[in-house]
Design a protein around this nucleic acid. Sequence first.
DNA 1: GCCAACGTTGGC
DNA 2: GCCAACGTTGGC
Length: 144
Amino acid sequence: MGKRYWLFKSEPSEFSFEDLQHRPRRTTCWDGVRNYQARNLLRDEVKKGDEVLFYHSSTKPPAAVGIAEVVRGGYPDATSDRQDPTWYAVDVRAVRPLPRPVSLAAMRGSPALRSMVLLRRGMRLSVQPVTAAEWRAVLRLAGE
DNA sequence: GCCAACGTTGGC
DNA sequence: GCCAACGTTGGC
């Protein structure tokens, strides 16, 4: 399967895109996800080479701020039983910040993003799929 | 701080 | 398996 696109949410007071950029090799283990739907995506769908929109929640305004890439696909996280893992992690590396952040309001205002998971019932999902068309639309809003 | 959305838990 | 109670997320 070809490259896919995702949106990862983080509260920057916990872990920001800038934090990711300052990590060794600009890489971190994306763990701590405790939602089964998001867990299933990490375990089964998020693959090395996929691209990630890094979204800051609980900020004024909430916004997509950067691009990262998956450098290691789903693997059982450190808290999981070896034989019967419950929770999964992936590794992500910062690629580049967006030229300008794309606020949630800006995304709401874009017809191309009408059915984006972020704007629908996936409001609370911390790992969510983004279509290729949505990806391009967000980057366009960001001025890329 | 409020509250809507929605996931999880547990009694039955 | 149903569903009410409860907890969490996260925008506003």
